[in-house]
Design a protein around this nucleic acid. Structure first.
Lengths: 198, 198, 198, 198
DNA sequence: GATGAATGAGAGTTCATTCAT
DNA sequence: TATGAATGAACTCTCATTCAT
């Protein structure tokens, strides 16, 4: 108990510090101080700054892949799958805002992160997303003439930009805003933004 | 001549080093070495790492704003304006790949960058983009029921994700791919990704 | 123990290095080397060169003020108070020669020191000294027609010049010399230097 | 003409910069900028920072020695000689305040200065002063029982402290204050500060 | 005479990490 | 488990000085 307590306090502190300062400017001493432990203990449990960071980021990827695999295997309607993907991001923003911030600010575009094995993490996600898009095409929901790559970029780009704007502005996300965002993304992605014919 | 030569060599070297290592891990000595000058000279001309970085990023924002203002004021068809915005990003990727990389990796999501006045730079861009979306709604091209904020996020998110994937994968961009990407974004944004009725 | 040992070793080393090279030319690496520790440890304990220097100088001011307050409050004869003030400086020269050197060379006239809050430190000392001079006037020992400012400058100037000459010449101060200096200062200050009438 | 103009502008600028920042923190670029010339020209004329500083300080010593030699050789009354010495310092403070500031802040106590041949400069001055004190004793003005060393320290210490207080406080010196300071120093030095018998 | 581009030794400081206790 | 003293590589930045023009 006590052991897990301290470990979790360190991880929580790390989430805050990485969010506030970014990986490069986060100091182990900051993390230890915010967790209320000595920095020796951070090393005792986590070995290095990089390991601690990777551990945190790994929980994100792991959750993301789980969700994507689940949707891929699911028998739900295609539209429902898209909704679930959008909701996953928005829910994570609500429930684990620090993790979401770190993903946006330190992972999804960071050259530093990508010098490591980071690119492959993304490619795996994109690949899962593409499979779902292919399924949408095969089931007759999506236009077969548009490449699944492109579909993925547009769909994911919309979500990521939404999330990023909220992260950067530290905006709260109410249930109502969440629904409106979801439906806006879906509507444009499926039906386009053009003016409705009467 | 000689003077501008050296200054430009330093800026070019900085573009490469910032692209490769990111702001935090870029060393002034790297930049100087790659430019073939002493690091004293980098300070002679640019004062500090931060100033040098800001100078580079400023050229990006300045070009971006110019383009957006031009499109806003233009009398071209709405669809044409969207095409021009997309082309601006793709052209910059082709002509100034290092600048584009830095924007993607160090600016558009960097927590470090956003602790400074960075957020306002984005808001200004989004605001210009929204004005164009509003124009599209007023001219009857775009659905008035979707908020201009949302339209902006979706449109820009698609572009940014395209660019990011190319940057991270260091992919070349042929004219043909450029055209296909443009039309994919436009088609989905305007008409949606749903399967075409026969 | 060990902790205080190292801290004191660093302070002692700093006293030597600041004395030998002055603040501006003292290198933190010198201090660390002379203390037999890494320079990281100097920063661990003292944060910066300036903090370390200020800490040292503060001990001087603090001791000086304590002595002056003590004399002010004392019920001793006025002449005795002057003797005690002179003795304080001479004793400090004997017991803490490095501190005295630093005061003479780096504080009492240093433009660098005075750009900080240094001037006020002096004014406080002068002010305490003046109060004692006023007391001397009120008790009928000192000539009321001479301004307490002037009395202070002359009295203190004599002491400081004695000390400075010893510091600059690295002269030893025997008990006997100490007594002769004290009585010379007192005699001239009180009775003047003019030839004695027979 | 033009040549001397620039040289003098550089020296004047150096006086200001050395006064404001002290030798260690004065930058050649500051001096050049304040003189309105390139820093290459400062080197062209003066060779190095140290040479420039020494040149300035040398004018002080040279003027001081001239005055002291003049007084030594003079047939004036002893008291008059003391007055002239005091006046020399006060006049220099009025006419060349920057030079006086530099002497007080950077020369008279600076350990940096004294690592060079600085101490001998002082000893020469003290030696001249002592000769005058000896003359005072021999002519029956000064008490023969007080060592000429001590007489020198007390007399000079009074002057230096007066000057220092004005320098540090950047106080103006009116003719009236000048007279009062002179007579206070003289009175105490000759007759002492003790209360006058009625 | 005059400029300022160019150099690079050198200094302060940071901070991840180790390890004795 | 837990601490924080201790280390030193690494980095940014300064600035006196040189020298081609």
């Amino acid at each position: 108990m006590a052991k897990n307590d301290k470990q979790e306090m360190i991880i929580d502190a790390a989430l805050e510090v990485f969010r506030d300062k970014g990986y490069a400017n986060a100091r182990m001493a900051d993390i230890a101080r915010r967790a209320g432990v000595s920095y020796g203990l951070v090393y005792h449990y986590f070995g290095s700054k990089e390991v601690l960071f990777d551990l945190i980021v790994e929980t994100w990827w792991s959750d993301l892949y789980s969700m994507m695999e689940r949707e891929k295997a699911s028998t739900a309607q295609f539209r429902e799958k898209l909704v679930n993907i959008i909701q996953f991001f928005l829910d994570t923003y609500v429930k684990r805002p620090n993790l979401m911030s770190i993903f946006v600010s330190e992972v999804c575009r960071s050259s530093v992160y990508h010098t490591k094995e980071g690119l492959s993490k993304f490619l795996k996600f994109f690949s899962l997303c593409e499979e779902i898009m292919v399924e949408g095409q095969e089931k007759g929901f999506l236009n077969r003439e548009i490449s699944p790559h492109h579909l993925t970029y547009i769909f994911y780009g919309a979500i990521e930009t939404f999330i990023s704007v909220m992260v950067l502005g530290r905006e709260p996300l109410t249930r109502k805003r969440q629904e409106r965002a979801t439906s806006a993304i879906l509507q444009v992605f499926i039906d386009g933004a053009k003016a409705q014919a009467k």
